Simulated assay, not measured.
Amino acid sequence: MIRKVLSISSGLDQLGGIKWELALCLLVTWIFIFGSLAKGIKTIGKVVYVTATLPYAFLFILLVRGLTLPGGPQGILFYITPDFSKLLDVQVWVGACVQVFFSLGPGYGGLISMASYNTFHSNCLRNALICTLVCGGSSLFAGLIVFSFLGSMAHEANVPITDVLSSGG
């Protein structure tokens, strides 16, 4: 059943066919992006108001849903309760570094392009701090959502949250 819904092929040697629904959505997205870019920087600024705030609205909706599920609040408590013994584990620090590079990395090209439109006396330090804090805050906020659903999964399976985390799927 899952292979049919997700259109998973039997292996790497069989790629499968084109999902026309997804291809059409991708085409519409690229037409929208091209139209925004062709209109200039003022249009991009207006588009960013929607594309920057709408994901947070969706994340907030998911957080409310995760909190209403049985076990959701326990998952969030697990997320925000520190385990100081993990600070001595090198793999935790490696994972944290990888998270920072992956979360800040995708924005570099766009940030450099948009920064070229800054005025000469723009406060670059303030802008860099805001970008870093928003990125880190977004990661923490998304973590609340993920752990609310993990808490629900642990409650449904009647296992500790650590077992859900270590199962890998």
Results as ranks from 00 to 15, higher is better:
residue 88 L to M: 15
residue 31 I to P: 00
residue 21 E to Y: 08
residue 47 V to N: 01
residue 73 P to E: 03
residue 87 L to W: 11
residue 18 I to N: 06
residue 30 W to T: 00
residue 49 Y to Q: 15
residue 80 I to K: 12
residue 51 T to L: 13
residue 67 L to Y: 07
residue 84 F to S: 10
residue 76 I to Y: 01
residue 87 L to Y: 11
residue 29 T to D: 02
residue 69 L to T: 05
residue 99 Q to K: 08
residue 85 S to N: 12
residue 37 L to K: 03
residue 90 V to F: 11
residue 39 K to E: 04
residue 55 P to L: 09
residue 61 I to M: 12
residue 53 T to R: 11
residue 94 V to K: 09
residue 81 T to D: 14
residue 24 L to E: 01
residue 40 G to W: 00
residue 97 C to P: 02
residue 30 W to Q: 03
residue 55 P to N: 10
residue 55 P to K: 09
residue 63 L to R: 02
residue 40 G to C: 00
residue 77 L to S: 12
residue 15 L to C: 06
residue 23 A to T: 03
residue 81 T to C: 12
residue 29 T to G: 04
residue 47 V to F: 04
residue 59 L to S: 15
residue 82 P to F: 10
residue 21 E to N: 08
residue 41 I to A: 02
residue 93 W to T: 05
residue 81 T to Y: 15
residue 48 V to W: 09
residue 88 L to Y: 13
residue 71 G to Y: 01
residue 90 V to R: 12
residue 57 A to L: 15
residue 40 G to R: 00
residue 32 F to P: 01
residue 27 L to P: 00
residue 87 L to C: 10
residue 92 V to A: 08
residue 21 E to R: 06
residue 15 L to H: 10
residue 43 T to M: 08
residue 57 A to E: 12
residue 94 V to R: 05
residue 40 G to P: 00
residue 29 T to R: 05
residue 41 I to H: 07
residue 26 L to R: 02
residue 57 A to V: 14
residue 27 L to F: 05
residue 65 R to M: 15
residue 87 L to H: 09
residue 69 L to E: 10
residue 92 V to T: 09
residue 73 P to F: 03
residue 98 V to R: 06
residue 37 L to N: 07
residue 32 F to V: 13
residue 53 T to W: 14
residue 89 D to N: 06
residue 53 T to L: 14
residue 31 I to Q: 07
residue 24 L to Q: 02
residue 27 L to M: 03
